[in-house]
Amino acid sequence: MPTTSKYNKPATRRKLSLWEKLYLFEIVRGLLTTFKHLFRPKFTRQYPEERWDPPASFRGRPVLVLEENGVERCVACGLCSRVCPPLAIEVRASETELLKERYPVVFEINMLRCIFCGFCEEVFPEEAIVMSKDYELAFTDPSQGIYGKDRLLTPKAQLKDRLDFLAKMRN
């Protein structure tokens, strides 16, 4: 004999009227509802023709910021790589004559692994790696999923939205 407790008490049901019990008319009501939707305006975005411009808070593909003088901001500290939960980022540093002393020789983000968490952006105080608006990531080969410096470096001007957003959120 099953006991009735707080957790397994029987579900209470509303008493149905005869009209509702007949069911048939309720079906018709449902059919009418769906029929009305046939003529509603559609939500579909015709993707390749109509593209979406994400807001500044959107977390797309992480990119490296390229300063106006053609040098990347990144100092290859490896904090992004350290904090990256799926181990998607690999950084190999080397020395440069510039004031910043070090720069990334190899900076690879494995976009097959990236989970767009934005930790890499958050961990770095100088905003050298930020989340871009790029969401169009499709590869025909797994090797294309590994983004090297050549594809990661993005001029600062293109990332203005995100950099402004970060500056705003920081204060």
Partner: peptide
Amino acid sequence: FRFKARVWD
């Protein structure tokens, strides 16, 4: 060794 690797790596 300068900058070749981070200690935690």
